[in-house]
Amino acid sequence: MSFELPALPYDSHLLEPRLAKSWIEHRYMGDHLDHLRVLNRWAAVQGQAALSLDDGLRAASEEVRHHAQEAWNLTLFWHCLTPRPEPLVEPLATMIQRQYGSVEGMKEACIRILGESGESAAWVWVLRQDDSLVIATTGTGEPMTTEGEPLLVLDVLGDSEALERLWPLINWPFAARNAQD
């Protein structure tokens, strides 16, 4: 089995005007596909066609780990967005209310943490640790070092304006399902 580009869960133009179709296609058909091509070359050298992203994350090569991490991040990221936003649902709604007061409060916390991370932050994560939420950032290709289950990830490249553009597109039902797993 080779690494294949997963289908987008929506047509690339449906996130406009918040995200331009050209940006999505560049990130999806350019960057995401490039990461998978590198992983396929690695799998061929290994002589194994049935390697997984998890295998890539544990590989000895820093380059392979980088590409596996970015492919994993992007795969999750596409599902964290939706062209038809729905309201926040349980149990995530209660977790956010208890910890941040509101979704707006959580967004402010994300912006603050992104600001503290500076330009090195490429991804903003919301993780579940038991009954609480943790916001963390990682750089391009960096592994997550904060403990917890990822509920959602946003591709921000160190830019709080990117977070502002993405926030109204968050797929809350998807994040809430991740909170239940």
Rank of each mutant, 00 (worst) to 15 (best):
Y28C: 02
G30P: 05
T138F: 01
I111E: 10
L88A: 10
W72G: 11
A71L: 12
S102R: 05
R84F: 10
R37N: 12
T94Q: 08
R58K: 13
Y100M: 02
E108Y: 02
L51R: 07
W123G: 05
G139I: 01
W42E: 06
Q48P: 03
R58V: 01
N40P: 00
G118H: 05
V134W: 00
I96V: 10
H67G: 03
M29K: 11
W123N: 14
L127V: 01
S102H: 04
M144D: 00
G56N: 04
S61F: 07
L74R: 07
A60F: 06
R112L: 05
Y10V: 00
S12E: 02
L39M: 08
T145Y: 05
D130T: 12
H67T: 03
S12W: 01
L57C: 08
N73L: 12
I113F: 07
R128V: 01
K107V: 04
G105V: 06
D34Q: 14
A49W: 04
R84D: 11
Q46C: 13
R84W: 14
E142F: 01
V38E: 15
L19Q: 15
E108T: 13
V38N: 06
Y28D: 02
V38R: 08
M106P: 05
Q97H: 07
G141V: 00
D34N: 15
S12F: 00
K21R: 13
S52A: 07
I24E: 02
L57E: 11
K21L: 14
D55M: 06
E63N: 14
A122P: 00
R112W: 03
V89S: 08
E149F: 12
C110K: 05
H26I: 02
R18H: 09
Q97K: 09
L81Q: 14
A68V: 06
E16A: 13
Q69W: 13
L74F: 10
L81S: 09
M95T: 06
G118T: 10
I96A: 06
Y10F: 15
T138A: 03
R65P: 01
W125S: 03
R84I: 10
Q129E: 08
H35K: 13
T137H: 01
A136Y: 00
I24W: 02
K107S: 05
V134P: 00
I96T: 09
V103W: 09
H35A: 11
E86P: 11
S61A: 12
L76A: 15
A43P: 03
L92K: 15
G47F: 10
D54Q: 09
D34V: 05
H79G: 11
L14C: 06
K21W: 07
K21P: 02
R84V: 06
N73A: 11
E104V: 14
G56S: 04
D11Y: 06
V103L: 14
W125R: 05
L19C: 09
E149T: 13
A122Y: 10
L76R: 09
R27H: 07
G30T: 04
E149D: 10
D11E: 08
R84Y: 15
T145N: 10
S22G: 06
S61M: 07
V45R: 15
R65T: 02
